[in-house]
Design a protein around this nucleic acid. Structure first.
Length: 581
RNA sequence: GGCCCCGUAGCUCAGGGGAUAGAGCGACCGCCUCCUAAGCGGUAGGUCGCAGGUUCGAAUCCUGCCGGGGUCGCCA
């Protein structure tokens, strides 16, 4: 149930009726007609801009349309009052039974309240994390992992068929570096001094890989040329790195549906196929690039190379797909990979990347536009940095010795729930400050705690109600008499609950899971506010001594809020707390 | 220099065509003999970076500047 789309439906229907009666001209475009919560609650429960939007095409005064619309809508039993205001807004006051209906819907639909059909079952692929398999995941990856996972859950809730996917960059030069680094650790495991030369990965995490290599190969790889061991060691090490990454993701409760390998694209002809497909469209050619505008690199020299005509789809320059030694650039297999995603039938693609990959956006969009004939949209979400703090002081990581703050460090200190929530309380393209002390603070100043506490309070009310012998099953509450819920503070909470389905659709349309976090904070705030009103005015307490019927209606309201908090936290991947300890 | 992102209250940030621009923190003023204080109620605080433009209406869309960050052929 989505109250806003219901009322919008009533508005559009009334407008259609006005058209039939000749009050409005035929063929008006209604898409711009919106029904929204007004900024100022004094303006009513909902407001529509219909009269202002239609005034010009209908060649009528906005207020005249609004008056006529108001007259029609007043006949709707759900609408208690419709009044024209300002430049032509139509403010609607809904009857109390509407809010009672919302509470019943939340209790009846439970975890599915707010679920939308917006996506209409379209297949969406969300590619995220995609960290190189050369070491443990660090803080930056953590934010991308949390964002991608929550976005996927949000889109699922909004009616899309979502696939969570990880692209393993196991085909480039960096995994050779990994292999050489692991080989040195293998030598170390055999009692030799490792030579961790400049450019190799120095981290301790490769020591167990070296030992495992010794276990598998004994000393047979010692004193052998690289050509003998490189492939085996590379495969072995990347497999170990991926196992480690999967464990890291599991710590954050992130689960992928599909792992795709870059390396697996080689030798299948998929890269050649994708490139030839583009060549057939005239999108691939041999040519010489202009030097970058402005500052020309020192070592720049004109060179003929194989180029992708990304400028045809809005990029600034065409992009090379082959290196000078004839091998593919990173871009080529990535084109093939995205081609593969298109061929697998996805209606929409989303890539979640670090902000340092911003320069990559236009060419990848160009490639997908070309390969799908413009039919499959690709949205690329860039994730900004996470700056770590401890007690207000920047948290320094020592780059020396290859140690950096890992995902595991963060989760072990802050916990998965806190890490996830905090990382989702900022828009993806804003830098995020993460203070280890502040995020663990148990006070209302900490949004994580604040929302968790709201849910715990609802659970607490339910537990106490049971002790009082009140039936508090969702079915019991849904069938309770809710007509006593008329106090402004109670209606405000109901109003906020009614906004949930609308919020889900807005967040999903924009691929912005942070909106869920902010909404939950507001909902928690309304619940806490109502709770606190009980200090002054005992008639507002959820539990009323010696009045089970009234208690039941108030508990229904609290429980409805709890249902939404639980569902929202579910999308964010955060466990709703039963109690605070 | 080209491209991308950011610039909103003292601070951290929401809002991304609608009405008088919001929240939290901080500041200031009140409030626990008691029934829900890991607190609560209230007040002050803004040229939405600047300047043009589009629109009935711009913090929001467009253009140009200013400031901060990222990125810039054979790394991924």
């Amino acid at each position: 149930m989505n109250l806003f789309s219901d009322i919008r439906g009533a508005v559009v229907q009334a407008l259609s009726a006005m058209t039939q009666d000749g009050q409005l001209p035929e063929g008006l475009d209604m898409t711009a007609v919106s029904v929204e919560p007004p900024r100022d609650p004094a303006h009513g429960d909902m407001a529509t801009n219909a009269a202002m939007v239609l005034a010009k095409p209908a060649k009528l005064q906005p207020r005249a349309i609004a008056e006529a619309l108001a007259a029609r809508l007043s006949a709707d039993p759900r609408i208690a009052l419709a009044e024209v205001a300002g430049p032509g807004f139509l403010n609607l006051r809904l009857s109390p039974s509407v809010w009672q209906g919302v509470i019943r819907a939340a209790l009846t639909e439970g975890a599915d309240f707010g679920r939308s059909t917006l996506g209409q079952g379209q297949k969406v692929n969300v590619e995220f994390v995609s960290a190189n398999p050369t070491g443990p995941m660090h803080v930056g990856h953590t934010r991308g992992a949390v964002f991608g996972d929550a976005l996927a859950a949000l889109l699922d809730f909004a009616g899309y068929a979502v696939t969570r996917e990880y692209y393993i960059n196991d085909g480039g030069a960096q995994v050779d570096v990994l292999a050489r680094s692991a080989y040195e650790r293998y030598r170390e495991a055999n009692g030799l001094d490792p030579e961790i030369r400049e450019g190799l990965y120095p981290g301790d995490y490769l020591i167990p890989v070296g030992e495992a290599l010794k276990e598998k190969y004994g000393d047979t790889l010692l004193n052998q040329p690289e050509s003998v061991w490189l492939n085996d060691v590379r495969d072995f090490a990347t497999e170990r790195m991926m196992a480690m990454i999967r464990e890291d993701l599991a710590l954050l409760n992130v689960r992928m549906d599909v792992y795709s390998s870059e390396k697996a694209l080689y030798g299948t002809g998929k890269i050649e196929g994708a490139i030839e497909t583009l060549r057939g469209m005239g999108m691939i050619y041999e040519g010489v690039l202009e030097p970058p505008k402005g500052k020309t690199p020192e070592d720049w020299e004109p060179r003929e190379q194989t180029l992708f005509r990304s400028t045809a789809h809005g990029d600034d320059v065409d992009r090379p797909v082959k290196k000078s030694d004839g091998s593919w650039t990173y871009f080529a297999p990535d084109i093939a990979y995205h081609h593969d995603k298109v061929l697998r039938g996805f209606d929409m693609l989303i890539d979640v990347l670090g902000a340092d990959h911003g320069g990559y956006v236009k060419r990848m969009k160009a490639a997908v536009a070309a390969l799908s004939n413009g039919k499959v949209p690709l949205d690329i979400k860039l994730i900004q940095l996470v700056k770590l703090f401890k007690n207000g002081e920047p948290f320094k990581m020592s780059k020396r010795a290859g140690t950096f703050v890992t995902l595991r460090d963060v989760v072990e200190q802050a916990g998965a729930d806190v890490t996830r929530f905090v990382m989702l309380t900022r828009k993806n393209d804003m830098a995020l400050d993460f203070d280890f002390d502040k995020v663990l603070e148990q006070s209302k100043d900490n949004p994580v705690f604040y929302v968790q506490y709201a849910h715990a309070r609802v659970r607490s009310v339910l537990r106490k109600a049971v002790e009082m012998g009140i039936a508090v099953g969702d079915a019991d509450l849904a069938s309770a008499d809710l007509s006593g819920l008329t106090h402004p503070a109670e209606l405000e909470l109901a109003r906020k609950i009614a906004e949930w389905p609308r919020l889900v659709e807005i967040a999903a349309r924009n691929n912005e899971p942070h909106r869920v976090a902010f909404y939950l904070y507001e909902l928690a705030s309304d619940l806490h506010g109502l709770w606190n009103r009980g200090n002054e005015d005992t008639s507002l307490r959820f539990l009323q001594e010696d009045n089970p019927a009234t208690s039941q209606s108030k508990i229904a309201l609290a429980r409805a809020a709890g249902v939404v908090i639980s569902a929202g936290l579910g999308i964010l991947g955060v466990t709703p707390a039963e109690e605070m300890r």
